[in-house]
Design a protein around this nucleic acid. Structure first.
Length: 558
DNA sequence: AATGTTGGCGCG
DNA sequence: AAAGCGCGCCAACATT
């Protein structure tokens, strides 16, 4: 049973029952307290809630203490469908889909941005301004949903695409719940780390003591010349004045240079970045009451990986993981998929030799024999195949890979070819990469003139080849991870006092869990990982091992 | 003064 | 040792 939901301004809303697989709907029912109505229905049975946008509705439900098992997020599903149909995602909203169905003008992109801009929202945001009243929005919702169900069924692999739509929607639920629970974050520990590395917190605008001292030492190393170490241009000029000419001030470039300022600069850059990106201002802005609450953007990356908006949740520096500590009586269950992308490639390509290697704990180790017993070479060969690398030994190793694992090599090379030819490629579950831009078509349309030595068209061609080559693997890995999150969420007991998903980063998940409920959770994660493999890839010899640690502190995870 | 771009680096 | 893919965010710098 599916139930369409539209929230009113205030606490009320409208509901309509719908069949899962076709058009039509029951009577429109108004309720004064939408959260209560949803909770009651949720208890009564197996419902998939159909709503315009999880980000607008679900946080309000969570605040009211209501958790739902399943939903169909019309905005996210529309995004998946539009990219499959080769269209931009600017119509990926209920209003946009409704306008497209009726052939009317596209609405301005609004709702979601408005929520983040103000940072606050009323209990329920008004439905999209395109709709004069909630009944009109509900009418649109029911129609757009039926249209989406039809388009999913029309996919070349409707089962897989249906799973993708369900998993993307479940991801939206998980993301909202993670933001609601928050990642446990000890402000005192964070502050102690900063103070230990940088010195006491300075008045805003000034450098902390340690950075100030380094800046002064750098000035002296340049013979007293005033240099702002934050300015790459000034650094390059100062180095050149001392006879050291560098193409950039990147760390690895600096490391190879011979100048007394180099070690100081390397220290300065590392600490300055910590201060700027995750210093005291970050702590003040993003951590409240012992919780870091990033704003996840489900499907925010073309490959289906999540992005975040604000807080940089997917770039938490390793040194700060010390500050992520479970509450007293609770534990962090940190689960990390091992060597996910090469395993995904093995499953995608149906390469039996590679799948056999991926049926073990350490994929690279079991591949080593094919590369003269050298694990590092096996790893480099796989990474080069997936990323399109060609430097160093990569060419030779790729030749070995091609000979020993022709299906796997052929899979990524076909994807690269498709990209270079301007075609699109899809993940295992059917997420579609964007088509090339007009600029790309223009530049690659005319072949390079070999006389001029200008290789612009070739470079753009190869760049898109690398993108599509990587897309099929990265996006299919994201399919797997999304299904994992959806399955894991389903298996965890809900509620305030049970295990809570609190963090998700591409191939890694953290569950904050009461000690007494942690027993067997590692086993659950392992089972869910295999289940995700089966759901996404069907029967396969490939294993998806997960390294799971039960720790008080994130920094102590394996 | 406000907005956009670049260089650099954090994470997977 | 770095590179090949995907991101977000900062300060500096460029442009309006």
């Amino acid at each position: 049973m599916r139930v369409a939901v539209v929230a009113e301004q205030g606490e009320g809303g409208w509901l309509a029952e719908m069949p899962a697989n076709g058009p039509g709907h029951g009577v429109f029912v108004r309720c004064d307290d939408l959260a209560e109505a949803v909770a009651e229905r949720e208890r009564s049975g197996d419902i998939r809630w159909v709503w315009p946008d999880t980000r607008e509705v679900y946080p309000c439900l969570l605040r009211a203490g209501v958790r739902v098992a399943r939903c169909h997020d019309v905005a996210l599903v529309e995004g998946l469908l539009l990219s499959r149909e080769g269209r931009g995602s600017d119509l990926a909203s209920l209003a946009g889909a409704w306008a497209r169905m009726r052939g009317t003008a596209a609405p301005p992109a609004v709702a979601a941005a408005a929520v983040t801009a103000t940072g606050q929202q009323s209990l329920f945001d008004p439905p999209d301004p395109l709709f004069p009243d909630p009944r009109a929005a509900l009418t649109a919702l029911v129609s757009v949903h039926a249209d989406q169900v039809r388009r999913i069924a029309a996919d070349e692999h409707p089962q897989r695409f249906g799973l993708l739509a369900a998993a993307e929607s479940a991801g939206a639920l998980a993301a909202a719940e993670m933001a609601f629970h928050g990642l446990p974050w000890r402000e005192d520990i964070h502050d102690a780390i900063l103070t230990g590395l940088l010195g006491p917190r300075p008045v805003p605008g000034l450098r902390p003591a340690r950075l100030a001292a380094l800046a002064e030492a750098i000035r002296e190393a340049f013979g007293g010349r005033a240099v702002n170490p934050d300015s790459p241009a000034q650094l390059l000029r100062a180095l050149a004045a001392d006879g050291v000419r560098l193409p950039s001030t990147r760390s690895h470039v600096l490391r190879g240079a011979d100048h007394p300022a180099v070690p100081l600069l390397l220290d300065y850059k590392e600490l300055a970045r910590l201060h700027a990106a995750h210093g005291w201002s970050w702590l003040e802005e993003w951590v409240t009451a012992g919780r870091f609450r990033p704003e996840y953007v489900v499907g925010g990356v073309v490959s289906g990986r999540w992005a975040t908006h604000g807080g940089g949740a997917l770039q938490i520096p390793r040194v700060l993981r010390r500050a992520v500590v479970a509450d007293p009586g609770w534990v962090l269950v940190v689960a990390d998929a091992a060597q996910l992308e090469p395993r995904v490639l093995a499953a995608l390509a149906g390469d039996r030799a590679l799948a056999a290697a991926a049926g073990t704990g350490d994929l690279y180790e079991s591949l080593a024999s094919a590369f003269g017993g050298d694990r590092a070479k096996a790893k480099l060969a796989l990474l080069s195949a997936m990323y399109g690398g060609a430097g160093g030994d990569a060419g030779q190793l790729l030749a070995v890979l091609r000979r020993r694992f022709p299906l796997a090599a052929g899979y990524v090379e076909a994807a690269a070819r498709a990209g270079e030819e301007g075609r699109v490629v899809r993940s295992r579950l059917g997420r579609t990469c964007p088509p090339p831009s007009q600029a790309w078509r223009g530049i690659t349309a005319q072949a390079d003139d070999p006389e001029s030595g200008d290789d612009r068209a070739g470079r753009w061609l190869r760049a898109r080849g690398r993108f599509t080559r990587n897309f099929v693997v990265q996006a299919s890995a994201a399919d797997w991870a999304l299904v994992l999150i959806a399955e894991l969420r389903r298996r965890l007991a809900d509620g305030e006092h049970g295990p809570q998903l609190v963090f998700f980063q591409h191939d890694e998940v953290i569950v904050h869990c009461p000690l007494e409920a942690a027993d067997g959770l590692a086993q659950v994660v392992a089972e869910v990982a295999q289940e995700a493999g089966r759901l996404v890839f069907g029967p396969t010899a490939v294993r998806f091992p997960v390294t799971t640690s039960l720790v008080a502190c994130y920094a102590d995870a394996a």
